[in-house]
């Protein structure tokens, strides 16, 4: 867990499907300053994993902080984490609290 986020959870999502299958909203300079999961698509890697939930806020992706990142930057980091062949999983540090 993150040192400053005692309620955070580390979720490892295996790349078990061709898509990650989440929709996110938020980012720096919006009403939702950290990216939040708004949809989990059935059949995607995130859904298969079973541990990510709608409403969770993403704090880190593969150890990279989402703080201060605008929406497109956060989305790009998540997309690249899923696309890279260096790992067969993506690690999300998430929290239920906004």
């Amino acid at each position: 867990p993150g040192l400053l986020e005692p309620t955070s959870t580390l979720v490892r999502v295996a790349k078990s499907a061709g898509t990650l299958g989440i929709a996110i909203e938020g980012g720096a300079n919006t009403r939702q300053p950290l990216p939040r999961i708004v949809t989990i698509q059935r059949g995607g890697s995130a859904h298969n994993c079973g541990q990510l939930k709608v409403g969770q806020v993403i704090l880190e992706v593969n150890g990279v902080s989402m703080r201060g990142r605008e929406h497109r930057d956060a989305a790009r980091i998540i997309a690249e984490a899923f696309k890279t062949k260096e790992r067969d999983h993506v690690d999300f540090l998430v929290t239920e609290f906004n």
């Binding site: 929709a23 919006t30 939702q32 708004v38 949809t39 989305a75």
Partner: peptide
Amino acid sequence: REKRLTLPPSEITLL
């Protein structure tokens, strides 16, 4: 007058 009320909503991206 809260600052957060003046911030725009975010777009949504499917990943």
